[in-house]
Design a protein around this nucleic acid. Structure first.
Length: 915
RNA sequence: GGGUGGUUAGCUCAGUUGGUCUAGAGCGACUGGUUUACACCCAGUAGGUCACAGGUUCGACUCCUGUACCACCCACCA
């Protein structure tokens, strides 16, 4: 016998082991079944499983389990990401704190530090693995991958080499986003903007004496950067400054810094902003750098580097060198004030760029970096020459990839429109090292060291042509470069990683998994990494493999706190840790609470009561199964032996009705899951189980259960809910499954049986329910205690026979002692009444009726009915309506009119009788 | 500055191409109930002019326009 309440803790780990040992998670590459593949978004190898992962795992597990049961060869590849910057900074901080080493990079050196990080990651990955299991994720652990695996590393190198050869990867000096805290560049997408109150200073840049007229004023929010200017820019048509264009001035700043600036004209300058003159800070602003590049020949003096990588003023700047940028700003402004050169100070709100990683301000600095060109039209995709940007647009426009919810397509296109070349090199040590080597003697025509590419992981030290030493580029690649290959680098045969005689194309050709399982079917992830990751997978995969990485993108929303705030580590009170929840409520309940009542792309709130609510549902399912088993025991029938349903003519009404209803549910659930409408399907199952199955069917079955139908229906329910609640359903399945059936996870998906559909029975069932409900309601309205037995008269021409057949049910469920059923009109006195379509219900209590209460209730009901009738009649009399509305709608209106009219008449009659 | 989404019962949210919606669910509230599947339960009740203002339509929670408030994303006005 099953225990009274479901205890997930006692079940889940055992069931998971059962699944895993059964081989059910493993996909067979030789199978002839159609593939269904998901590449699991790899959690960062640093951390702990959080709700973001939990919702991802729950959704993907539902997709996978459903498709596995439907007969697809389902493959779900798990893995972890080395998470370059995030991991390196975590480990460095740990070393700083625990070992009191202020600069671990300097102290340990590259090799040792990388070793330390690798050790840390190895530990962390083990934690992640066990946490993924706790959620019930049915992924193929035999194919687990890690972004730093040799094969994945090989893929990174191969793609880099290919792009380099195609001229899509290039090295150039550009103003990039420099994270002064982490000492590395970051990409444009890794920048966040925070509104900040700033001061716009208007500085007297060039005195009136020098111009021979008015002084030149410049507005800036970063005065300190002006210390290294080499030009002033104005709009070419700005009459105020036309006479200055082409002139050169010497500017002496406080503390002795002297610069020579030339006045240039550029269309980008907005004459209306500030003074209309821009101090061109070439090295500390992307736009200034661009303008400088355009006008370099007109600007004789070379701009200065004002701020260094450490965020301090460089020693090129007299008087302020060594100060932090902000300190220098204050000092400089103070000095200018003393000289009377601050003409204006205005407060305004300015978006400040901060690093997504370190949350510290980003310093734009000119640096020699590696970039991916998104505009060069050298990529052949589906037989057409396109740029990477164009392919990104094409695959969505052409419908090769579908995004759910579709409104994110708009965001996606907008992002592409703004897309600039992607800076892929990072100045950190943890990650895939740029596979470029520089020859110490050979030079390019422009004098830069000769670049040599090597995809091999073996040491490459000597240039084979000249015999000189070669040195590898010290930088590593953006994490997203390797994760962009994830859908297919994980499918490449790992045993080929060291065979350098093979090209990437050949490797893929010889990788059975890739041939069978790529492209993948769904990419499911949070909308917050649509640009970081999803778009980049599309970009890199279409380029490298010539095909899409996935057919459908399903984006889930963020899980927020009860108050709608983001959960954050810094505020542990608000955090819900899946690992606390699972032992308490079970993984199934957690899964339901994150999926039901949500829609893709929208954030949702999660809190304990919600989870408890779904725990209750899981428990309900548990107890319904207990009930079924008890019925079977009574009948001395083993549920495991029940194989066939009796002929439908031999079935009672509730049996026919529930079987019929089940068919619609199977159909609805199947279709809904095919279309990724998980929340809706979940709700459907929830109410089918609780309302239809438990509250009505099981209750009606008490005492006269048809065990075959009970067991059949329960089995189907367990199958249908299994993708949502794998643990509890698998456990229950073991008690009710057919004798020859294996695990539920491997069970085929239920199919609809048209022969079991029976609309008439469902309608009759509803009439029966209606009668029981209305008797219960009358009793409650009258305040009659439940123990009190009732005398009820049912009058229904249409249903008299039906009610007679179901007499026992009505008597028991509504607690009726004396039940009269008649097909004739009746005129009982001293009763309370309810009027259903085709049926009148009278409850008599011999003088106990509270007349006033009943009259009041009837009047209220009459009011309502009258209002409704008026509305409907007005509609039906409106020729516009009858002329335009479809006949179905009109017919429905007529029906409603008739039933309401009939009801109203009865209410009136009853009112008269009472008064 | 550009864009997107939201605004439906006290709370959290569903509502599929406009008409079986006289707008639903869960939680909470209230009334009553220990009838051996389940108190992690059962029976029942109350509670909404679907943010606001216009428009389209025979008909709008659903489509269009505008307003307000709340989120979010993007952005090289120094």
């Amino acid at each position: 016998m099953l225990p009274k309440a479901y205890a997930p803790k006692a079940v889940e780990d055992r069931i998971y082991a059962l699944w895993e040992n059964s081989g059910a998670f493993r996909a067979d590459v030789k199978s002839t079944k159609k593939p269904f593949t998901i590449a699991m978004p790899p959690p960062n190898a640093t951390g702990q499983l959080h709700l973001g992962h939990a919702v991802m795992l729950a959704l993907e597990d539902i997709f996978i389990r459903f498709n596995r049961m439907r007969g697809k060869e389902a493959l779900w590849i798990p893995g972890t990401d080395h998470a370059a910057i995030a991991t390196e900074s975590v480990v460095i901080k740990e070393i700083q704190k625990k070992e009191k080493i202020p600069d671990p990079r300097a102290k340990l050196g590259r090799e040792k530090l990388v070793q330390r990080i690798a050790e840390f990651v190895e530990k962390s990955r083990g934690v992640i693995r066990s946490q993924v299991r706790k959620m019930g994720a049915s992924c193929d652990w035999t194919r687990e991958r890690y972004t730093m695996d040799p094969m994945l590393n090989r893929c990174v190198n191969e793609v880099f080499a290919k792009m380099y050869k195609d001229g899509l990867i290039y090295r150039a000096e550009r103003v990039v986003n420099w994270d002064t805290a982490l000492q590395t560049t970051i990409s444009d997408d890794e920048i966040e903007y925070v509104d900040q109150e700033a001061t716009l200073y208007t500085i007297e840049y060039v005195g009136a004496k020098q111009t021979g007229g008015k002084p030149i004023l410049v507005s800036t929010s970063r005065p300190e950067t002006k210390l290294g200017d080499s030009a002033l820019a104005v709009h070419p048509d700005d009459e105020r400054f036309k006479h200055l264009i082409g002139k050169t001035f010497d500017v002496v700043w406080p503390r002795g810094q002297t610069i020579r600036v030339s006045v240039i004209a550029d269309h980008l300058i907005d004459p209306a902003f500030g003074t209309g003159v821009l101090g061109l800070t070439s090295f500390h602003s992307k736009i200034d750098y661009e303008i400088w590049q355009r006008h370099r020949t007109e600007i004789p003096s070379y701009p200065l580097h004002v701020i260094g990588e450490d965020g301090r003023i460089t020693d090129q700047i007299k008087g302020y060198a060594g100060m932090k940028a902000l300190e220098a700003r204050e000092a400089f402004v103070e000095d200018l004030k003393k000289e009377g050169r601050i003409a204006k100070e205005e407060k305004y709100v300015q978006p400040l760029s901060i690093s997504y990683r370190s949350k510290k301000p980003v310093e734009p600095l000119p640096k020699l970096q590696w970039f991916i060109d998104v505009n060069k039209r050298v990529v052949s995709y589906r037989g057409k020459q396109m740029s990477l940007r164009e392919i990104l647009q094409h695959v969505i426009r052409a419908g090769e990839i579908k995004i759910i919810p579709s409104l994110f397509e708009k965001t996606y296109f907008q992002w592409i429109d703004h897309l600039q070349d992607w800076c892929i090199s990072r100045q950190i040590w943890w990650g895939h090292r740029v596979p470029v080597y520089y020859c110490s003697t050979c030079k390019n025509p422009d004098g830069t060291p000769l670049e040599l590419i090597s995809v091999s992981t073996e040491p490459y030290t000597v240039h084979e042509l000249c015999g000189s030493r070669v040195e590898q580029d010290p930088d590593t690649l953006d994490t997203w470069f390797s994760s962009a290959l994830w859908t297919w680098s994980t499918l490449a045969d790992p045993s080929l990683a060291d065979d350098f005689s093979l090209s990437l194309e050949e490797i893929l050709k010889r990788s059975p998994d890739f041939q069978k399982f790529h492209p993948t079917q769904v990419m499911e992830t949070g909308y917050d990494i649509l640009f970081f990751w999803v778009a980049r997978m599309i970009l890199m995969t279409t380029y490298a493999v010539g095909d899409i990485p996935f057919e459908t993108v399903y984006l889930h929303g963020l899980i927020r706190t009860r108050e709608g705030k983001k959960m954050s580590k810094s505020d542990p009170e608000t955090m819900i840790d899946p690992l606390d929840i699972i032992p308490k409520y079970g993984a199934d309940a957690l899964r339901l609470s994150m999926i039901l009542g949500q829609s893709p792309g929208n954030d949702s709130r999660l809190y304990e009561e919600k989870i408890a609510g779904y725990r209750n549902f899981v428990n309900k399912l548990w107890n319904a199964s207990r009930f079924v088993l008890m019925q079977c025991d009574e009948a001395k029938i083993d549920p495991k032996t029940i194989a066939k349903l009796p002929d439908s003519s031999a079935l009672a009404l509730p049996d026919r009705a529930i079987l019929s209803r089940l068919q619609s549910i199977v159909e609805k659930v199947t279709k809904g899951l095919e279309e990724y409408r998980l929340s809706e399907v979940g709700d459907t199952l929830y109410s089918f189980v609780w309302d239809d199955f438990c509250d009505w069917y099981l209750e009606l079955s008490k005492g006269n259960a048809n065990t075959a139908v009970l067991v059949h229906t329960l089995r189907k329910i367990l199958q249908l809910i299994h993708p949502y609640c794998p643990f509890v359903t698998e456990e229950l399945w073991s008690h009710v499954k057919p004798a020859d059936a294996g695990l539920l996870i491997a069970r085929p998906w239920p199919e609809t049986k048209e022969a079991l559909r029976n609309e008439e029975s469902e309608k009759q069932f509803l009439s029966l329910i209606g009668v029981i409900q209305s008797i219960r309601k009358l009793r409650a309205d009258q305040g009659i205690e439940p123990a009190k037995k009732l005398h009820v008269v049912l009058s229904s021409k249409k249903h008299a026979k039906l009610f007679e057949e179901q007499r026992e049910h009505i008597e028991r469920m509504a607690r009726v002692e004396k039940l009269e059923i008649t097909g004739k009109k009746v005129k009982p006195a001293n009763v309370v009444s309810a009027f259903l379509p085709e049926t009148e219900v009278y409850l008599s209590l011999e003088g106990l009726i509270d007349k006033a209460k009943e009259i009041e209730r009837l009047k209220k009901e009459k009011d309502q009915a009258e209002k409704f009738l008026h509305a409907i009649e007005a509609k039906l009399q409106d020729k516009q309506f009858t002329g335009n509305a479809p006949s179905k709608v009109i017919e429905m209106g007529r029906e409603k009119q008739a039933t309401t009219k009939a009801k109203l008449e009865k209410i009136e009659k009853q009112l008269k009788a009472l008064s």
